[in-house]
């Protein structure tokens, strides 16, 4: 982590987060803290509750019980479920990012790439066209999209390009916390490698905190500092990523790790 470790306060505090869909369990009693610059991977197979957890944490879903406290830019701790809708929407647009598995869910497909990146800036009051365009160009460069595509719509982009555009769109306002739902899901292997390298670099360079949901242990190893393994809605093992992957304690974790095919 390039982040200054003298920051003693965490960024996010989660207490006993539980979500039921009717009588069906989504996730139960999840508690953890996240520090600035830290990447946490939530790993599990389908139905483990990891997506439910991510959606609850990002206030996309309202949990059944439990709290999530976030340290706002002014230093105040707020329970994100107590925020007014206006406050929450503002938070999601400025201090948070959410990278969807399907980039079309996180982009405006009928609007140019430049406008996609610039939208958040315009939403917080930037009224200088030249500045917005310059910033958009800069970010397209950082996610390795050719500058001459700035006026093209994402409909004409490949999956990998759309995903990189989604990342640029999210990062342009300098968020401190980014949620990612299977960011490399559905992408070709070579495209994945490029995307992961990009993410790794940006996260390190910008000191982002991130919560990454993935079923791919290699992605977890590459991107995250810490890891939580979920099964049937519960966190069954958590700790330093390389420790959990190299010295798994729980039966399910051992099963997961041993199931990876070797190339």
């Amino acid at each position: 982590m390039s982040q200054d470790m003298s920051m003693q306060e965490p960024l996010l505090k989660v207490d006993n987060l539980t979500k039921y869909y009717g009588s069906r369990l989504g996730c139960a009693d999840v508690s953890f803290e996240l520090w600035p610059g830290e990447v946490l991977a939530i790993v599990g197979e389908s139905g483990s509750g990891k997506t439910t957890l991510l959606n609850s944490l990002s206030a996309t879903l309202e949990p059944t019980s439990g709290q999530t406290h976030y340290r706002m830019r002014d230093g105040a701790w707020r329970n994100i479920y107590d925020l007014s809708e206006a406050e929450r929407r503002f938070l999601v647009r400025t201090d948070w990012g959410f990278v969807h598995q399907n980039p079309a869910d996180g982009l405006r497909m009928t609007v140019s790439a430049g406008a996609n990146v610039g939208e958040r800036l315009m939403a917080v009051g930037d009224r200088h066209y030249g500045h917005i365009r310059e910033t958009a160009l800069d970010w397209l460069g950082r996610v390795e999209i050719a500058a001459d595509r700035i006026d093209d719509q994402p409909r004409s982009f490949s999956g990998g390009m759309r995903q990189r555009l989604q990342i640029a769109r999210n990062l342009v306002t300098g968020p401190r916390l980014v949620f990612m739902d299977e960011p490399t899901g559905g992408l070709d292997v070579s495209v994945q490698a490029r995307l992961l390298d990009l993410l790794r670099g940006l996260v390190g360079e910008l000191g982002l905190a991130a919560i990454v949901v993935t079923h791919d242990l290699a992605v977890a190893r590459l991107l995250s500092h810490r890891m939580m393994v979920m099964k049937d809605g519960h966190v069954i093992e958590a700790g330093l990523t390389d420790r959990v992957l190299d010295d798994p304690r729980e039966p399910y974790t051992q099963l997961l790790v041993s199931s990876i095919l070797q190339v």
């Binding site: 405006r108 609007v111 610039g118 939208e119 315009m122 365009r133």
Partner: peptide, 10 residues
């Protein structure tokens, strides 16, 4: 109203 400016930007 950020979206309104997106239209003008386009």
């Amino acid at each position: 109203y950020g979206l309104m400016h997106v239209k003008l930007y386009e």
